[in-house]
């Protein structure tokens, strides 16, 4: 399987209910967390499994490809 392209996650904060489910299901190493107890929002994720988007009860997580290093 080709390696997935890294992504950056965005959280629609208006809908987020701070439930922590995205962090609970995330297979990343320790510390992939935002100051608001969601998955990290400004760090590229190289696993890109997207289970955080699936678990979110209000579907408020989206992603874009991470900018390529210059």
């Amino acid at each position: 399987m080709p390696k997935k392209e890294p992504v950056i996650f965005f959280i629609g904060w208006n809908a987020c209910i701070n439930c922590g489910a995205c962090v609970a299901v995330c297979p990343q190493k320790a510390g992939f967390i935002s100051p608001f107890d969601t998955i990290a929002v400004n760090t590229p994720c190289d696993i890109a499994c997207m289970v955080c988007e699936d678990i979110c009860p209000v579907s408020t997580i989206t992603h874009e490809p991470a900018p390529k290093p210059a």
Binding site: I17, A21, A24, V25, V51, I55, C56, P57, V58
Partner: peptide, 8 residues
Amino acid sequence: LTELASCL
């Protein structure tokens, strides 16, 4: 994901 219930 198959073992974590998403609750509201």
